[in-house]
Design a protein around this nucleic acid. Structure first.
Lengths: 220, 220
DNA sequence: AAAGGTTTTAGAACCTGGTACTAATCGCTA
DNA sequence: TAGCGATTAGTACCAGGTTCTAAAACCTTT
């Protein structure tokens, strides 16, 4: 005998007629919603807590477990275990790549000892929640990463920098940093790198970096 | 990763099963290992790929699935689904807290419009893997966060900065940043903040920040 | 009122990747 | 020879599902 998802008919009588034409927003809180709204609510609930089971959703939405499952299927939402697996995999990959993340922003062009370009999109985690303006250190991180990357040496460390945040950068904006090496390549000790960051045509940040270099690019 | 690492008492229980020290059976590559070594290998395999099932491990270690499960139990390694759940939960919490992370480093003292102190420990994810030296932007992030935090305004944005990375900071070092507001509080427009970061007695970083302020600290 | 469509519910069979438990069996040793 | 740890086998059971079939329940149209 296999156990079957019993579900002790929690709401048999709720199936009375005209079941959602009542003053839909009663005291009772959640009356059964029409399909569209229920599915929307389902998405919200799962989004809010991805660890919720179908059985739990049954409780919250006052429909049968089959309905929940049909809804998930229609909406293309995978089952709990699949969701957890996806999260786990994502975080696992992230951990792996985070360690490798030597650079903030995507470098899309790099001419060693000459110049480089990187793109960095301002996302939720980069802004002040209140103002939606990017925190300065993320803008700096992009510029600094690029300045270090453009130096063709075993070891390159920022020695000093001079920054100007020209205008606030907002959530969703794509920040394009362009770095130019100002001293001749291979010159011992220190390199000077200028980084200019743009959103569209507009310059939003400017930095002058002095990069300490190990100066052993010959043995690579 | 999550290495539960259950006390591998090296030789507490003299494992009687030394009965596999016969000619190591070079023929078939991995022949069955003695218990201790197998368990060690098990830990390695799971560590290497936390998404591996017991059945897969059976293949790899050439023992029955019961043995795998006994081993997991002895070692306190949870089942695959539990492992995935833990990873998912951890990453979920991380995402949540990352978004809330308005400040890099722990602020341990703050006198608004006067001074502030924060501590930041250099961990794996902050250093160049090759050299174990902290990337500049993390050091900057700590200083910048503190400089912004110390300004008692609705909105405070970095306008410009002038940085000196005095000496490299290494993995494991605790960086203590001290910020001093150099202009009189409430003065309109811009505040000047000096941040000095130390490892022990040694100054490792110095920054002069100009912080743009909304200057509406009265209505708080 | 009957027909027809959508929505919702029910139930059974089956799946994966396990746990929990009992009971052999193997290989060596005291 | 008995004993003992290590290993294997097998069964029952579980959560949290998928898949499928089938029957209501509801709503609109004819």
């Amino acid at each position: 005998m296999h156990r079957t998802d019993g579900s002790t008919d929690a709401c048999g009588l709720a199936t009375a007629g005209a079941y959602f034409f009542a003053p839909a927003k009663g005291e009772t809180g959640i009356e059964r919603l029409p399909k569209r709204q229920r599915q929307q609510r389902l998405v919200e609930l799962i989004d809010e807590n991805p660890f919720v089971t179908d059985r739990e959703l049954t409780r919250r939405l006052k429909v049968s477990i089959q309905t929940i499952r049909l809804d998930r299927m229609e909406l293309g939402i995978p089952e709990l275990r699949e969701r957890m697996k996806l999260m786990a995999e994502r975080s696992y990959d992230q951990v792996r790549s985070l360690a490798a993340e030597e650079v903030i922003g995507d470098i899309i062009d790099l001419q060693l000892d000459r110049s480089g370009i990187s793109i960095f999109e301002i996302r939720e985690e980069h802004v002040f929640t209140r103002t939606q303006i990017a925190r300065g250190h993320h803008i700096f991180a992009q510029a600094n990463s690029l300045a270090v990357a453009v130096i063709n040496d075993e070891i390159a460390l920022t020695a000093s920098a001079d920054l100007r945040f020209v205008r606030p950068i907002h959530l969703g904006e794509k920040c394009i940093a362009k770095a130019y090496v100002r001293t001749s390549p291979g010159k011992a000790g220190r390199a000077k790198v200028e980084v200019l960051s743009y959103v569209g045509e507009e310059m939003v940040f400017q930095g002058n970096f002095i990069i300490y270099r190990s100066d052993d690019n010959k043995n690579r």
